[in-house]
Design a protein around this nucleic acid. Structure first.
Length: 281
DNA sequence: ATTGAGACCTGTCGGC
DNA sequence: TGCCGACAGGTCTCAA
């Protein structure tokens, strides 16, 4: 589930348990995670205080008192569970010893919270990097603008898309173009913008380099899509709300006055869902 | 330089 | 019920 809105929801849940708290104990249940844990991962965390927890794209970054940053990525199937001590119960300071087979890392915080990282598919990442060198990190350093920031505007989108022959759907999945979008919300935003996923990315800009109307619409649609999704994350009732197009092959388009049916195609090896009737821009 | 394919892992679901 | 292939919300590396 983790694209930007889901990662942001995780951040908001983790922050109260982590910010200002120390790592009392760190348990790495599964060494040799695909994610190349640095040596002595647990030892380097123990005793450190989390000064802040921010999100960058799909990454969570915990700023540590040691001058390092704990970098976390949920991959395809990662999740965190936060357990707070039951009120009135004395914490005995023992890690929960029975856990899911895919509970890979457990943080016991001085706040009393126990934070468990679970990731069946093990595409997730945990790493420690010097805070001063974050911009040299291969993924973070090259990452595009935060879509909900002012930096993400039509001009910027048109510029990074210039010269790209790949379809806009594929370009938007590239984290260097814009940060945090994944396969679901790219389809969702393109539908909201009434743009075809097959449209060449380069056509966000005119030959002169100035952004076309489509870039304006797309930027707006991406922001709206993500803002709504983040809001939805806040209300458990709506978390499972259906998407506009994602995973709705053959079902009717939700655009007012459109009688199209959602189609599914493959682009760069991944499913794209769109309405061939109203996404013609 | 850009792009697509394959790889990384495990779980789930539909079809036979 | 059991087996098997297709597929899954991410990203990296490699070859063309």
């Amino acid at each position: 589930m983790p694209e930007l809105p889901e990662v942001e929801a995780v951040r908001r849940e983790l922050a109260p348990a982590m910010r200002g708290a120390r790592f009392r104990r760190v348990i790495v249940r599964r060494a040799g995670l695909r994610t190349l844990f640095p040596d002595r991962f647990a030892a380097r965390l123990r005793g450190r205080t989390v000064r802040g927890l921010v999100r960058r794209g799909k990454y969570l970054l915990a700023d540590l008192s040691s001058g390092e940053t704990l970098l976390m990525h949920l991959g395809m199937s990662g999740s965190f569970q936060v357990d707070h001590p039951a009120p009135g119960r004395v914490s005995i300071g023992v890690a929960k010893d029975v856990g899911d087979a895919h509970d890979h890392v457990v943080f016991q915080m001085s706040s009393g919270a126990t934070i468990t990282f679970n990731d069946p598919r093990r595409f997730g990442v945990m790493d420690l990097v010097p805070s001063a060198a974050l911009d040299q990190h291969a993924a973070l350093g090259a990452m595009g603008p935060e879509p909900l920031s002012r930096d993400f505007e039509p001009q910027a989108l048109a510029r990074v898309c210039a010269g790209r022959r790949a379809p806009i759907k594929v370009a938007l999945l590239d984290q260097r173009v814009v940060a945090g979008l994944g396969n679901i919300y790219v389809s969702e935003a393109l539908h909201l913008a009434h743009l075809s996923p097959r449209r060449p990315a380069s056509r966000m800009a005119r030959p002169s380099g100035t952004p076309r109307e489509s870039a304006v619409h797309l930027v707006r649609a991406i922001k709206t899509t993500l803002e709504r999704a983040i809001e939805r994350q806040q209300n458990p009732r709506y978390r499972s709300a259906r998407f506009r197009v994602y995973d709705r092959e053959g079902q009717p388009c939700v655009t007012t006055g459109c009688d199209g049916a959602i189609k599914r195609i493959t682009q760069a090896g991944r499913s794209t869902f769109y309405c061939p009737v109203c996404q013609t821009g």
